[in-house]
Structure formats: C-alpha cells, structure tokens
Design a protein around this nucleic acid. Structure first.
Lengths: 341, 341
DNA sequence: CTGAAAGCGCTTACAG
DNA sequence: CTGAAAGCGCTTACAG
C-alpha cells in the first residue's frame, strides 16, 4: 500500500504524532526534528490521505460551488471562468472544491444538502444571487457558512457577498457615452429580472437624470425598435451581439450611427467587428475574493458578514465613438480618469 | 454531533456492522432487519460520513475531471456543458466529482497528481485528447484508470475513449451541401492542430473526392479570402460567427450567396441571423457515456479499452440553402434519411 | 443471517 | 519539545 505517517515515523525515528505535527508545521516542534521528518517524507514520497485527515480533524477543507438551477449554464462564459478562478485560488490555500449543479431548484437543493450532510464540504460559494430561494433558506436556516457571488435581494446584512458595484457600472456607462457627446441614450435589456439588471439600470437612470438627458428602456425581442437614440447601454455582451446583428441588418452603422457599450468583457465582445467597448468585471478577482472571504468566514465564526466590492475597468474598443457632428462638451472630458473604480 | 452508524444500531437494536450492511443493501441481511434498520435511519436522519467510508473502504467514489491546460476554457461552451452532464450522471451512481484545472500543463499535472496521491479520486475523465502529454503519460505510466473525451493520437487501442465520429461528421457536412446542389465547397478553419480538425477535414476531403467536387482549405485570419465557393464547412460555431461577420461586411449574403454549415450546436449558433445549420454533437451523452465507461473500467480491471462513438444529429436552420439557379441532382435527394448516425 | 473485533490513516488532548 | 493513547465513523474478514 501507499506510504503512511507510520512509515515516515519509523524511518525518521519519531512517533507518528510527531510526523503529524510536522505536516501541519506546528510551532512546538524543533527545527531539527522537522527537517529530519521532512527528509524521510520526501525520500518515501509521502502524501497525506485526505480521507483520514478529514475524518480525524473534522475539517473537510473543501468548498462546494453551487451553480444556478438553470439548464444552460454554458451560454454564459462567466461560470466556467469563475469556476477556474475559484479552483485555482482554492489550491493556493490547499483546499479542494466540489460542485453542485441541477436543472431544477429541487435537484440542486438535494445535491447541496447531500454535500453538506455527508460532510464533504465545510460550506459553499453560491454563484447566483437575487431573491432568496430554497437553497439559501436551507443554508441560512442551518447556519452553514457560505458566500454569495452577486448581491442578494434580502438579508444583505447577514450574508457575506462579493460583487461589482453594478449601479456604478450603469453610471459609468452613461459617463463614457455622455463624454462622447451622446445625449439620447437607451438602456437595452432582454430581461427585467435580477439584481444585476435592476442595479445597472438604476445607475443608468440616475446618471442620465443628473445630466438632464433623455433616457429610455428598450426591451430586445422580436420587434425591437428604437427612436432617435445615438447610443445604447446593453445589459451584457451576448445580448450586444444580437443587437449588433439586428442593427447591421437594418443598415445602421456601429459606431458611426449608434454607439454601443456593454458589460462583462467575455469572448463575445471580440467576435464580430466592431469589437465592443465593455466593462471588464474582473471575474478572476470575483472568484478569488469569494474563496478568501469564505475562508475568513470559516475562521472567525462570529456572525460578521461583509460585502466585497470588486473594481471594474473600462475596455475601450470599437463600438463607441464621439457623436457625429457634435462638439464634445468640455466638462465631460475630465472624467476619463475615473475608469478604474 | 451528527448521527452515526452507532446511534442507528442502538436504536434498531442491532450491531453497527449490520447497519453498515444495510446501507450497502447486502443480500445476506434479512428483509425484516433491513426495514427495522431503515426505519431507525430515517427517524434519526442518518447520512453517512463520506470520509469515514472512503477511509474504511479504500474507494473514493469520486472521479477527477481534467480540463485542458489553456487559459480560456470559457470561450467554448462545451466545457461547462460537459461538466454539468458529467456531474449529473455521476450523481445517479452516487459518485462525486472533483476538478483539475491549470493554465499550464505543469500546474495541471501537479493538481492531477495531488488528487490521486491524496486518494481523493479513483481516477479521471480527461476532457481533451490529441497528442500525448505529461498528464496522460503519468496516468498511463501509473496505470491509473481514466477515460478520454476525444480521440487520442496514439495508443488508441489502450485508452478508453468517448467521441463523435468526426470523419463522418465531415463527410455528412459535404453530403448535406452537395445535396443542395453545391459543388464548390471550402473547409474553413482557424486551427490546423488537433484530432478534431484533422478528422473533420479528412472526412470532408474524402467525400468531396468521392463526388469529384472541387474542394479547398481556407484559413481564417486577418486577410481571409476565397474563390468561387458557394458553401463553407466551418470548424465550429464560434468561428462561424466570425466568418459570418466578415461575409456580411463584404456584402455577401448568407445563405443566398454562400451557405454555411458548422459543428457543435452551441449557443453561438443562434445569436445572429441567419442561425446556423449545424451538427449537434450531443455533449450531454458524451459526458454521460464518459462516466459510464469510467465506472465499468473501474469494475472489471482487465486491460480492456474500447471506444464509444456518440451519434450526432443535423440541425437544419437558416444558413444553408439550395445553390441558386441550379437543379438539385436527383441522386442527392435520397440521402436525407441518414442525418442521424 | 448477525455479531464482535480489528483496522483504515490520520489528529489531538494529555502527560511528562 | 515529544510520545503514547484514544478516537474520528466507517468496512470487512472471521466466527458462529
């Protein structure tokens, strides 16, 4: 069989418990013993048995990652990206991840419960926010540690969560466009559900009002139509691609006739010219922060829950330009420095 | 603490070992005892402790899923889709999954080794094929059970793998197009690496030759140009979207001037009109089959390695049509029944 | 058909 | 600073 702590102890001439202490780098062990034991470990090619460690210590050192209960997670590059980021950050802390997926909420909840009740995970990172659902109820009701990626609709003060400032995102989009001289701007969406929409749209509306500009909300569906707008703020870059297709069909030029700015900076932004001016929401950081927050949640098991706001960044590409035949107002120019928030 | 096998045993008035046997539904236990024990389990809300079970049995009942060592897994919806399928199939067999990701081969290999040496997984499902690399060398060298999704370049006979018939896919694409009267067809790609390209292209070439048609291979890059082709077979639907964008820029109409057929049937196929005629490669089945195959590999640990070919399906949409101003040859018509393979 | 016992490979009070 | 021992919650020969 594989080499165990006993074999190492024998070789190093110490007690197994000493080997165990060396593994976790306990401060009470002398450097001399440590190096002796480490030598034996590497010579024998020792690796811990995860199951034994989990059983004895009661800590699983693994986090369950919960995907949203929808059929098509694959249409949003976000999920694969954040999963990768979470996994790689977790590795640095020597912790593993398990995943929970399900087409329905019911199925998903079953998986979540199972992961926790079989003591496979110490807690969860939940990849969707919005309104409370059965899974979050279960987690909160049983005081299971978890962090949310996104902003919850309720109990915000009792849930550790990690998100971008979506309102600011909406406002910055307007600023960029207004800075280019646009004053008829529409917000385009294909969903009116969810915190992300609500917040981005809210930020958009606020900033438009502040500037006394004419704003409108456009729903993208079969019979998508618009007025005299010269710029669109679009919910995400998948939708932007659809909008772009539609505009091109109608002979509208982007960005000459209409400027497009969008969010997320996924691959969809650079498929067809004009490539999209977009906000990078820093998914990698979102993922990394979620595991860091989870870990600190686990350590001080006080009831302290904070929100972490991950900064975004404007990526200038081809889909926005100065409004044709207009002078850009001087006072708009100065705002460029604020792109990083 | 949580309820254990001991608590259940006490309540049911049996020995813990009997409870253990009831859990795995051992045939030697009487129905009477079973139901007594089960009652106690459900009354106490018993769930097994995974770590204890793993430690005692030596079986982890978890599979490691290995993603390709590339930075951007998120640009291909394939990965999230197959991960979901694998996870859901695994659940049915009551087995868990762990994941290994890494930007470099080195990093990835470290993760794979760790998963195995810490005895967290029984083996792996590897989500990329092609040429042998350090990871596959490690797996084969140590006789670690694994199944490959895709077709390996070497040792095909010694590796259990699951794939579509990519050559047939290439051939069927030609058949569909030829059936619509096209006789100048190009294969468009942005990579000449990998089995997938090689096989699809090979099938394309073979079928074109068989029909005495003029074929060409076009590389999609900055200065993409073509000749008198009236139809393209395109490597995947992400690339197709790029090609479509380019063609539209040049005023070429799809499908009126040029028909487009592609593979994979991801979300990218229905973003911009014309929606793509594409082959659905059945990723869900690919994922399910990979875990089934893995499980049977684990059971009969003979050295038997088979290939599983998952059928595909032609999805007719808007990007292909009969060649303008041509009669469709009669003998092409009859081939429509073969779309499902 | 069921029980008693040993063991899987760790961790962690408790002593000294 | 280190050792000896008990225990984590299961499984699985071995007996009967």
């Amino acid at each position: 069989m594989a080499v165990t702590i006993k074999d190492v102890a024998l070789k190093a001439g110490v007690n197994p418990s000493t080997v165990s202490r060396v593994i976790k780098d306990a401060p009470e062990i002398s450097e001399k013993t440590k190096s002796k034991v480490r030598k034996a470990m590497s010579e024998l090619g020792y690796t811990r048995n995860a199951a034994a460690q989990i059983l004895a210590s009661g800590k699983t050192n693994t986090i369950g990652v919960v995907f949203p209960p929808v059929v098509d997670k694959s249409s949003q590059p976000f999920f694969m990206k954040i999963l990768t980021a979470i996994n790689e950050t977790a590795r640095k802390f020597n912790i593993s991840i398990a995943i929970a997926t399900g087409h329905t909420q019911h199925e998903l909840k079953k998986q979540v419960r199972l992961l926790y009740s079989e003591r496979r995970v110490d807690g969860f990172i939940v990849l969707y926010a919005g309104k409370i659902d059965g899974i979050r109820e279960y987690l909160m009701g049983n005081k299971i540690p978890f962090v949310l990626v996104g902003t919850p609709s309720d109990h915000q003060n009792e849930i550790t969560h990690v998100d971008n400032d979506n309102e600011l995102l909406g406002r910055e989009a307007v600023r960029h466009l207004a800075g280019l001289g646009h004053n008829h701007i529409a917000f385009v969406t294909d969903t009116q559900e969810g915190e992300v929409f609500e917040e981005r749209y809210q930020g958009f509306v606020d900033e438009m009002k502040k500037r006394n500009l004419t704003s409108s909300l456009l729903n993208f569906d079969q019979r998508f139509s618009y007025g005299n707008e010269t710029a669109f703020v679009i919910m995400d870059d998948v939708l932007s691609l659809k909008v772009l297709g539609k505009l091109k069909e109608e002979g509208v030029r982007v960005p000459e006739d209409i400027s497009l700015i969008t969010f997320n900076n996924s691959v969809f932004g650079t498929i067809i010219h004009p490539f999209f001016t977009t906000f990078d929401i820093n998914v990698t950081r979102l993922g990394a922060a979620s595991v860091e927050k989870f870990l600190s949640l686990l350590n001080d098991n006080s009831d302290y829950h904070e929100k972490t706001v991950v900064p975004f960044k404007l990526i200038l590409r081809e889909s926005t330009q100065e409004r044709q035949g207009e002078f850009k107002a001087k006072h708009n120019l100065q705002e460029y420095g604020e792109q990083d928030v």
